[in-house]
Nucleic acid binder design. Structure first.
Length: 428
RNA sequence: GUACCUGUAGCUCAGGUGGUUAGAGCGCCUGACUGUGGAUCAGGAGGCCGAGGGUUCAAGUCCCUCCAGGUACCCCA
């Protein structure tokens, strides 16, 4: 009977070494940087009630309308695997009665799920590193968030970055703009497609997402967002640009950058690598969301955050420069010949490991030559050779790999001898 | 969701118009060198040729369906 062949669900990834190592390295860099900025970790469930996401991102957004993994639990409640991190964070804070008067900095790393056609850099389950600063509405907070994002990528060796920014105005601006847009659409009602008619009723700004070419034509005549922003919003955007310049973060303004979530206000941004063609070049995106906390029933509280796609970042990095991360160096390899020697060796190996050394040993009973070859491949600094002759003589051979020099060391106390050797080495 | 391309050893890939036991490089294992490592040479293991059907005397090769990956549209991380 042939065993059934299982395969990973479409659009998901199995991370095996060395890919798994790369992913964890990127995560570690993110955590370190977040801590420098005073952000603390938060973990929230991978699924939430469907309504949470629907209300946050907006019913008419692509994410909510066609990309969610939604299912009914056994009691018939509609649940959804999180497509993004922000709603869960905000919900959690409100639920535990968080004091929103304080300034809260949080970060998270975890899986996000979106049902879409898989492609390179586009998966149905992907890992996102994200953060939120909740409380301050100052532009300096926006700059801080963008700065972490940019510096995160720089720390990974990605320095040819393109930072794109835009403003979508305040809630009031958007309400006013939507009204103006709706009037425009109604005036030329017959020229728009049925989908756009629907959008006009529910969220007029989404007509810009329409794929029908004719609709795009007409929209060239539509009033622009910039023209309808309040002076405060425009000033705010100017300040953002000034502060970014002061930090020497180069940016481009893209008025068409709206982001796919309805809850954004004022500053929105996206970071990609230059020269990386293809549509999945965006490594991170985020923005301000001053009305989401209130929308979820909390104290009206401004906030700002971003999400970064770790798979895309891993793909963008040139790992040749980071060889030592993918293949860390080994301190000691134990060459054990014969079953008896192998049994003695495993104990020595474990003691050295507990003491903090990276120790390799072969459990297959491979040949002498092969085991020494493994030590070589792993770039072990030294080898402990333990065969039947040594066992009888109560010694081991300690071999320094680079010079090839070797000496006999008593089997009793070999762990201490080796540790001693390594501690004096590292003190130099 | 729509269109096109792809799917052969662990990895990267060869396999004109269908034709005997399916190949290479890298990697792995063994030996030359009874117990001393990056080289060289020789050998070996490892494949229901993505899955299932069909055409044919004969299918890795042609046809259909499905699955998966990639590219464009779209969306985004």
């Amino acid at each position: 009977m042939m065993a059934k062949k299982y395969q990973a669900p479409r659009g998901t990834i199995d991370y095996l070494p060395p890919e798994s190592v790369k992913q964890l390295h990127v995560e570690a860099v993110f955590r370190d940087l977040c801590e420098n900025y005073g952000y603390q970790p938060i973990r929230t469930p991978m699924f939430e009630t469907t309504e949470l996401f629907a209300r946050g991102a907006g019913e008419s957004s692509d994410i909510v309308s066609k990309e969610m993994y939604t299912f009914d639990d056994k009691k018939g409640r509609s649940m959804t695997l999180r497509p993004e991190g922000t709603p869960g964070v905000v919900r959690a804070l409100i639920e535990m009665g968080w004091n929103f008067a304080q300034q809260t900095r949080l970060y998270y790393i975890g899986s996000m799920f979106r049902y879409q056609r898989p492609q390179k850099g586009r998966y149905r389950e992907h890992t996102q590193a994200g953060l939120e600063i909740i409380g301050p509405d100052s532009v300096t907070a926006d700059v801080e968030v963008i700065s972490i994002g940019v510096n995160f990528l720089i720390a990974l060796g990605l320095d040819d970055l393109k930072v794109v920014i835009n403003t979508v105005g305040s809630v009031e601006d958007r309400t006013r703009y939507n009204e103006i847009l709706k009037v425009f659409i109604d005036e030329r009602h017959d020229e728009f497609c049925p989908d756009c008619h629907f959008r006009a009723e529910h969220n007029p700004m989404r007509v810009f997402d329409c794929k029908v070419p004719e609709c795009h034509e007409i929209l060239n005549d539509a009033p622009g967002m910039f023209d309808t922003l309040s002076k405060e919003s425009l000033d705010r955007f100017e300040t953002l640009k000034e502060l970014l310049e002061a930090e020497e973060i180069e940016y481009e303004v893209d008025p068409k950058l709206v982001r796919g979530l309805d809850y954004y206000t004022h500053s929105v941004f996206e970071v990609m690598v230059r020269g990386e063609e293809g549509q999945q070049s965006s490594l991170m995106g985020g923005g301000r969301y001053d009305s989401l906390v209130e929308l979820y029933g909390g104290q009206p509280t401004p906030a700002m955050g971003f999400g970064a796609g770790l798979e895309r970042i891993v793909e963008a990095i040139d790992w040749e420069d980071l060889e030592e991360i993918v293949n860390p160096e080994c301190d000691i390899a134990i060459v054990a010949l014969g079953e008896q020697a192998q049994r003695v060796a495993v104990t020595i190996a474990d003691k050295l490991r507990v003491a903090g050394l990276m120790v390799h040993m072969d459990h297959r009973g491979s040949s002498f030559k092969n085991q020494l070859g493994q030590a070589n491949t792993l770039k072990a600094a030294a080898t402990i050779i333990l065969g039947e002759n040594e066992l009888e003589g109560g010694i081991v051979i300690l071999k320094e790999m680079e010079s090839g020099e070797q000496e006999n060391v008593p089997l009793d106390g070999v762990v201490e001898t080796v540790l001693q050797a390594f501690s004096t080495d590292s003190e130099d």
